[in-house]
Design a protein around this nucleic acid. Structure first.
Length: 269
DNA sequence: TAAGTATGTTAAG
DNA sequence: TTAACCTACTTAC
């Protein structure tokens, strides 16, 4: 279950396991059988990640685009692949390693032109070197939509999902219902900078911790809750519990179809 | 055994 | 705005 950090991590894992190798590609479940056939026994040349999109490159033969959606998962293992268990959409393997993809929203083979079109409809990704936060700010500064809605928009900050949305707004003390046009440039810069820090940590650790020691705000002097996803968070899924900083009761609402969590005490105005 | 849940997106109404 | 979709796992009955 993935926000951008998971996807960038996967790009690294695929590259480490298979980069430069001739790989077997198939689709035991069958739904990617045609695409798999076209890159089977080819060299896996490179990988790329932009927001929640993962790209696995096969040189002139194109790119596999994967979007995990809500449920998608990849399981890596050493050695040749075992007999398939469950619905494996995409399996990549050599004699020394294998990777099994289950449950993605998207798994398709693209040309490089089609891949470019995907990049074009995504905004800056805090995890990419080429990201320009001004591209997101241009949309935020004039928007009559709430910042909580805007942070779900992949054209504004690609890779941000429901946990990062809730936690970054909490850390920056911003009311999630504040309209984009009422967010200051300084606040946006701080939100962006915090996303860069948090998401880089996420790539390194494989989970979302909002309290890594090097950037813990002084006010956050109590330990966060360990969420079921394995990360340590302050507001995500803590509905009804006391805020770990100010003690007020954490609230929840559905915004952009997703459960938003925030602290009415820490996030005013 | 059935229902509910999940870090997401798209298409139909 | 709502429903549909991809899968596996947990909880309720």
């Amino acid at each position: 279950m993935p926000e951008g950090h998971v996807i960038h991590r996967l790009a690294g894992r695929y590259a480490d396991a298979f980069g430069g190798d001739v790989v077997r590609v198939d689709s035991p479940q069958g739904r990617f059988a045609d695409g798999a056939k076209r890159v089977d026994d080819r060299v896996l040349t490179s990988t790329d990640a932009h927001g929640k999109q993962l790209f696995i490159g096969f040189g002139e033969n194109g790119w596999i685009r994967v979007h995990l959606g809500l449920y998608g998962k990849v399981a890596f293992g050493d050695g040749p692949p075992p007999a398939p268990v469950g619905a494996i959409r995409l399996r990549i393997s050599t004699e020394s390693a294998h990777a099994e993809l289950r449950g993605p929203t998207v798994c398709e083979l693209l040309t490089s032109t089609e891949k470019s079109a995907v990049h074009d409809r995504l905004g800056p990704d805090p995890l990419r070197e080429d990201a320009d936060p001004d591209d997101g700010w241009k949309r935020v500064r004039t928007s009559r939509v709430s910042i909580a809605s805007l942070l779900m928009n992949q054209r504004i900050a690609a890779g941000v999902g429901n946990i990062y949305r809730a936690e970054v707004l909490f850390r920056q003390g911003i009311d999630p219902y504040r309209l984009g046009r009422n967010v200051t440039r300084d606040e946006w810069d701080r939100v962006w900078g915090d996303l860069v820090t948090l998401m880089r940590d996420g790539v390194r650790t494989g989970r979302i911790d909002t309290v890594a020691p090097q950037h813990t705000p002084e006010a956050m002097n109590r330990p966060p809750r360990v969420d079921d996803h394995g990360g340590e968070v302050y507001v995500y899924r803590r509905f009804g519990a006391d805020c770990l900083v100010c003690g007020e009761s954490i609230r929840t609402d559905v915004v952009e179809g997703r459960n938003l969590f925030w602290c009415p005490g820490c996030q005013k105005g």
